[in-house]
């Protein structure tokens, strides 16, 4: 799952896959602002076929947070 999340991040924010590590977050790239975050959420929902809880979305700012959220949604 982590690899797929990184692939989505790389595509949405137009960065090299190798530049994405565990600490990758909004501060890492300029275009990860509110609008960029929405593009990320839409791409993740499409890629993983999930629908995030609206109240959780603002917390999905790290690979771990995203992975945990997706795992939780898949488990339910």
């Amino acid at each position: 799952m982590e690899a797929e999340i990184k692939a989505v991040l790389a595509k949405v924010f137009d960065v090299e896959l190798g530049a994405i590590d565990a600490s990758f977050g909004p501060g890492a790239v300029e275009n990860w602002d509110s609008a960029g975050h929405m593009r990320l959420i839409m791409a993740l929902e499409e890629s993983f076929d999930v629908m995030f809880d609206d109240d959780d979305v603002e917390n999905l700012v790290s690979i771990k947070a995203i992975a945990d959220s997706i795992a939780g949604l898949k488990a339910n």
Binding site: S34, H37, M38, I41, M42, D54, D55, V57, E58
Partner: peptide, 14 residues
């Protein structure tokens, strides 16, 4: 304000 904006973005997306 940023939190309200984000919630509205999600509602718009849905």
């Amino acid at each position: 304000l940023a939190q309200r904006m984000m919630r509205f973005r999600m509602k718009a997306m849905r």
